[in-house]
Each structure stands twice: as structure tokens, then as C-alpha cells.
């Protein structure tokens, strides 16, 4: 699914990632941890094709991303669902319209996907807020909206950057259970978090590994959960 071989990335002269080598298999679940500034977000951005490695090689879905054209990158992004801590929405569109946005940009007919859309709203328990605007909903609802939007295109992989950072423990658990459900459906999950309790809470639900980023290096943190 994702293959990093000696991948590196620098902001100017400051190296953020150095010689990162890691394989993420299809259908696997990974937590990405590490101190602030370790490069978690940079690594995630590379995984959802917002950044390209400066050195080394990054293959996603078996394709070398540095060799892709802009159009191919656009197509590949549709196979990766992204959830941020501070997800951006189009504030002039309703919750339902925001979830349908990936369909819209992919040129798909929303009417044809209405059942799927309603199922997703129900799955993230947002059906009662479907006609609200993003500025009218709570932090937890925003994260669930982001998750629903990330999966409407049925992506192969979900990349989540501190999705529980702005929500309480209970809401964090609800979000995690949704991600576990997605993983059970075969989606690859890469979740960056510094919340060790969140990582521990997955034990027994799905097999997961913890990857730790420190000093630009990525290591398997030991325990497989």
C-alpha cells in the first residue's frame, strides 16, 4: 500500500525526515506517534500526496509518486481519505453538501449516491445535523463530518492527523471506533496521535502497530496491539 525507502524531507536546510524506510500493508492499522515537531504531519502529508519526498522513494498503491503527473496525483488523492485535527470545510455548504463534495469534484452524480450519502450521515450520527452549516456544529461533529467526507469516495486508505486532538475522551473513542470499523472493512488506517490512552484503547479490537517518529527516523515502537 505505502512503501517508503530512505525517504527524506527538509524545510530549507532543516531536515525533518531522514532515510525513512517503512512498509504499510493494505488493510493494516497504524498509529504514528512522536514528540511535537518530529515530522508526523510532514510524513502524513507525503502519504496523502500533499508533499513529495526530497530524497529516497515513496510508492503509494505501487506507484512511485515522484513520477506522477499533476493529473495522476489528483486521481490518486481520491483514493486517500484525509481527516485533520482542524478540518477545513466549505462554510457556505451544508453538512450534507460538504460530505458530498468529493463526489462533486470527481464529477459523480450526487443523486445517484444519495443512499450512500444518507447511510454515511447515519453512520457518523449526523443525520439530524445534515442541513446545518459547518460553523453551526460542535468540534466532535466536525470531526465526524470530516470522517464521513473522507470515506464517501470509498478510499483505500484513511490518513488521520490528530483527529481526536480537539474532542473529549468519549468523542475520541467514538471516532476511533469508526476508524476501527473502516479498518475491518479493509481500509488501511494511518492515524497520527500523541494520545497514548487512545492507542491503548484499541487493544483487542483490531491488530495495530505503533510507529514512532523521533529525530527524523521512523521506528516500530515495539508493541503490536
Amino acid at each position: 500500500m505505502i512503501s517508503l525507502k530512505n525517504a527524506g524531507f527538509s524545510y530549507g536546510s532543516r531536515a525533518i525526515l531522514e532515510n525513512v524506510t517503512q512498509e504499510l500493508a493494505a488493510g493494516s492499522f497504524h498509529f504514528l506517534t512522536g514528540p511535537s515537531g518530529a515530522g508526523k504531519t510532514t510524513l502524513l502529508k507525503m502519504c496523502y500526496l500533499s508533499l513529495m519526498p526530497d530524497s529516497g522513494k515513496l510508492e503509494i498503491f505501487g506507484q512511485d509518486v515522484t513520477a506522477l503527473s499533476r493529473e495522476q496525483i489528483t486521481q490518486m488523492r481520491r483514493r486517500v481519505g484525509v481527516v485533520h485535527q482542524d478540518c477545513q470545510f466549505l462554510n457556505h455548504l451544508t453538512v450534507r453538501q460538504n460530505i458530498a463534495l468529493p463526489l462533486l469534484v470527481a464529477g459523480k452524480n450526487i443523486e445517484d449516491n444519495m443512499d450512500n450519502l444518507e447511510d454515511l450521515l447515519s453512520w457518523v450520527e449526523m443525520d439530524h445535523r445534515a442541513d446545518a452549516f459547518p460553523e453551526e456544529i460542535s468540534g466532535g461533529e466536525r470531526q465526524r463530518l470530516a470522517l464521513a467526507r473522507a470515506v464517501i469516495m470509498d478510499p483505500d486508505m484513511i490518513v488521520a492527523d490528530e483527529p481526536t486532538g480537539n474532542v473529549d475522551w468519549e468523542m475520541g473513542q467514538r471516532l476511533l471506533s469508526l476508524l476501527v470499523e473502516l479498518n475491518k472493512m479493509g481500509k488501511t488506517i494511518l492515524l497520527a496521535t500523541h494520545d497514548l490512552n487512545l492507542i491503548r484503547s484499541i487493544k483487542g479490537q483490531v491488530p495495530a502497530s505503533v510507529l514512532r517518529l523521533k529525530d527524523g527516523q521512523l521506528n516500530l515502537a515495539g508493541a503490536r496491539l
Binding site: 496523502y48 500533499s50 489528483t74 466549505l90 463534495l101 469534484v105 467526507r149
Partner: peptide, 16 residues
């Protein structure tokens, strides 16, 4: 810019 970033993340090409 925020909207453009979001659209790109959702798989919108520059032409779109």
C-alpha cells in the same frame, strides 16, 4: 486559499 487547499485534498484538479 482554504477552500482551494480543501478541494485539492478531496481530489480536485487545478482545472476543476
Amino acid at each position: 486559499q482554504g477552500i482551494i487547499r480543501t478541494l485539492r485534498l478531496l481530489g480536485a484538479g487545478d482545472s476543476y
